[in-house]
Amino acid sequence: MVAAIIENDRVLPQMMQTMSFTAFMPTNEAMDKYEGEKNVKLIYYHLANIPYTAQHLPDEINTQLSGNPRLYVTRLPSGKASITGWEDFNIFINNAKILQANHIAVAEDGAEQVLHIVDQVIAPTIAKAAPNTPLTAAYRNPDAQKLLKKPNLYGLVNQHSVTDFERRVTELNLLDVFNMQGKNTFFIPVNQALNMMQRL
């Protein structure tokens, strides 16, 4: 399924024959389960232009998708022995776990390429501005604060809306907490969850 998307694009096949890259490719089963749009933009979000083996993946990776939105790498001890250099950790790329790592290839001009197989499609966080409205670069790689301030740009609407939480955070002058530097995890309730709490 991934191969078919690549082959139908004008640029991607040539790029993959001549350039260095890291590819995080979901299994066919993962693609079948994915309910989002399956197009070349999705593939670009699974590609980086630097070849990384699993044991050398940085914490953040710029992708080839327009605006270079990042992928985030998480490592959790697996309890297994490291046979080829990476198995002692379960490695996640955003939500997707690496199942097979370090398939090495060489492009036509000798550029190194690395393929990792992942168990889920990595859905890109893409801001969508209104028609004829320019989108500033600041919103292409959002932190939690930007997600709170402009949730509609990222599809956080209707049952996924977080506007009530953002309103309360703003009232308490705590919005800056959500753009702190470093690695952070934020649990942000949707409006429906807050409304349920208020009824208790």
Rank of each mutant, 00 (worst) to 15 (best):
R168G: 06
K80G: 02
P151I: 03
L153N: 06
K38A: 05
G36E: 09
I43D: 03
H116L: 09
L47E: 07
L65A: 05
N141W: 01
I93R: 00
A96P: 04
P134A: 09
L172A: 14
V169S: 03
P134T: 10
M31Q: 02
T125S: 13
S66I: 03
Y139H: 12
P151W: 05
K150W: 06
L135R: 08
D32S: 09
R70C: 00
P77W: 11
L47N: 07
A130T: 02
D119A: 06
D164R: 08
V118H: 03
N102H: 10
G110H: 13
R75P: 00
S66E: 14
Y52W: 14
A130G: 00
N62D: 13
R75K: 15
L71N: 03
D143F: 05
M31Y: 09
L47V: 04
Y72P: 01
L57W: 00
N102Q: 12
G155P: 14
P151K: 06
A144G: 14
I50G: 00
N102W: 10
S78D: 13
K149G: 00
D119H: 09
K33R: 14
N49Y: 07
V106A: 05
T163A: 12
K38N: 10
N158T: 06
N49V: 01
L76P: 00
I122T: 07
L115N: 05
R75T: 01
G36A: 10
L76M: 13
I61C: 03
V40G: 11
V114H: 14
Y45H: 15
Q159R: 10
D59K: 00
V114M: 05
L153S: 09
A111C: 08
N152C: 04
K128R: 11
A96F: 04
I50V: 14
A129H: 06
S66K: 11
T63Y: 03
N95P: 05
N158K: 09
M31H: 04
H160K: 11
Y45D: 00
P151S: 04
T125L: 15
P51A: 15
A130W: 01
N68D: 14
D109N: 15
T53A: 09
L76G: 01
N68I: 01
A129F: 06
A48P: 02
T163Q: 10
S161K: 14
I83N: 11
N39R: 13
F92W: 12
Q145D: 04
E166D: 08
I126P: 02
T74Y: 06
R167V: 02
R70V: 00
T133I: 05
K41C: 03
V157R: 12
P77S: 15
N152T: 14
A81D: 15
Y72S: 06
